[in-house]
Design a protein around this nucleic acid. Sequence first.
DNA 1: CCTAAAATAGACCATTGGTCGGTTATTAGT
DNA 2: ACTAATAACCGACCAATGGTCTATTTTAGG
Lengths: 196, 196
Amino acid sequence: MKKGEKRRSELLGIAYKMFLAQGYENTSVDEIIKAAGIAKGTFYYYFNSKEQMLEEVIEGMIAEEAEAAKRVLGSQLSVPQKILGIIAAVRPAQDEQHIKEVLNRPENVLMHKKIGEHLFNVIVPLLSRAVEEGVQCGLFDCDHIPERVRMLLVLSSELFDKADFTAADADVFIDVMEKLLGAAPGTMGLIHTILQ
Amino acid sequence: MKKGEKRRSELLGIAYKMFLAQGYENTSVDEIIKAAGIAKGTFYYYFNSKEQMLEEVIEGMIAEEAEAAKRVLGSQLSVPQKILGIIAAVRPAQDEQHIKEVLNRPENVLMHKKIGEHLFNVIVPLLSRAVEEGVQCGLFDCDHIPERVRMLLVLSSELFDKADFTAADADVFIDVMEKLLGAAPGTMGLIHTILQ
DNA sequence: CCTAAAATAGACCATTGGTCGGTTATTAGT
DNA sequence: ACTAATAACCGACCAATGGTCTATTTTAGG
């Protein structure tokens, strides 16, 4: 790896941590360069703007989650388990739960939105393949799979964003999920396991 | 109305127009006070911050939409028509279609999110009453109405935010809506009329 | 070694949201 | 009508921020 590439990813790493710890809007370029021990000019030598840097940071995050999702998809798990696994992969881990809180602060809406957009583009195709499997093995019965999967993800991210979702929220989500995919009642009940 | 109140709403009116025309982040306080012909100090005499002003502007917008929704709810329309009407009331009018574009620009995510939050709090109860009516007259069959209504609104706003939604999107939305409410297929087909 | 390109530095800039002390207009009490 | 208090208003000023620009140092290849 060239020197430039190394520095670049070093900066992305620093920014990643800072964005998560204190939020995007709350992290100034000055703070980043101070933490990295570089000058303003160097920063703008590697990135066109602060926002473009955010974009790259997010791409990195998504790439990791997509990797996890792909592993689940290629595994020997049952279709409902795969779906569960993919949704779980997309969701901030338990110990990173505070991220949710940070992301939902008003200063970070932009970051939040960008993550959502990227994530959807990457995950919808993967999750669609899992659903496709389910249709083929007679577990589900539906058309327009990508559209339905997208709705599923919209609902699930809404659910996870809620600071406090109730048992009713979870029940309805599972019910809607089954109906949306044309699955028999109870098919997706195991989703409860990730909805603490 | 006192002088102060008049000025206050005058400022809100000016800001409302400017926010919609050029976006929240793109409208500086300096521009607002210039358009209003007042000094910086006067602005901060009436509002604690630019963001708080945004909040008030949005409250005004929501209040209007809630009024329209209430009128629909109190009308003699059929339940599906009421639901259609409420959803339509919440949605930017055709001639304000460009608002959608403005709202989705990255600089306006904050504004967009705040609108969404306020809107949901106001509209969920109203729409829930319409659904309740539907359940009582045997048209729908479901529990956890507010949770389901919320999901419906989440999906519909997602749909409307999309610059280009396809026929498949609309079909799936209607299908999901019927299943979500426990309605017979075709019950909500008239939603097509607002999905151009 | 020398030179071109890559990498780094940091002073500087314009804009922005917000503050503050002071001034003018309005209102109420006597 | 006079005055005191309060409301309304002014604009200079401020700190922070994202971003630019020119100059300097490092690095790599011939």
